[in-house]
């Protein structure tokens, strides 16, 4: 307001100077000599008008413009800051994701390797077990075969003995001690087996 008041006063002074004749001789003498007519009243009034105009323009129009531009700049900076923050966050998330992905891949690889190893161990174990069982079955079968062979031989021997006895009994048609004859035949057969 002070500037506007000063401006108005200067305009009034300018008008007063224009109206008065006191400076006319100076204006006519000095300025006309160089070919220019400068009216001091208009000069003072112009300074007054500008003094007021500067403040009016600055206060009512330029300050709001500067505030708007500053506000926009701050908003842009804020937006860019947020974008930058988000970008940093995204980068961090990406890094974390990649790290986790790498870890997951490593874990998966490790687990697969462990599973493969476990499967291979299991395979070896199963193979060994199977071989062992097969060997057992084979041994058992051999033993059973041997046992059956011995049993068959024994049965055969008994049968042959019985046949021999029956044949001998029939042939001799005499009462012979059956147990004694059997022992003699057994001894005979044992001798025959050893020879064979």
């Amino acid at each position: 307001m002070a500037f506007i008041a000063v401006g108005a006063i200067l305009v009034a002074i300018g008008a007063f100077i224009v109206n008065s004749k006191s400076l006319k001789s100076v204006e006519d003498g000095v300025m006309n000599a160089v070919g220019l007519h400068i009216d001091f009243g208009k000069l003072i009034a112009t300074i007054g008008m500008f003094t007021a105009l500067f403040k009016i323009v600055e206060y009512f129009f330029l300050n709001p413009l500067f505030d708007a531009i500053d506000g926009r700049t701050k908003e842009l900076e804020h937006t860019f800051g947020e974008a930058e923050s988000l970008r940093t966050e995204m980068t961090q998330l990406k890094t974390d994701y990649e790290k986790r992905l790498t870890e997951t891949e490593a874990n998966a690889r490790e687990q697969i390797q462990a599973q493969i190893k476990e499967a291979q161990d299991l395979k070896k174990e199963l193979m060994a077990d199977a071989q062992r069982k097969a060997e057992e079955y084979k041994q058992q079968a051999i033993a059973e075969i041997e046992s059956e062979k011995r049993k068959a031989l024994t049965d055969l021997r008994v049968h042959v003995t019985n046949l021999s006895l029956q044949a001998t009994e029939k042939l001799l048609t005499e009462n012979v001690d059956n147990d004694r004859n059997r022992r003699i035949i057994d001894d005979f057969l044992a001798t025959v087996e050893v020879k064979n």
Binding site: I38, F40, K42, L43, I44, A45, I47, F50
Partner: peptide
């Protein structure tokens, strides 16, 4: 010229 001189003086 008075107006211009006024501005120049300011």
């Amino acid at each position: 010229i008075a107006f211009n001189l006024g501005m120049a003086l300011i």
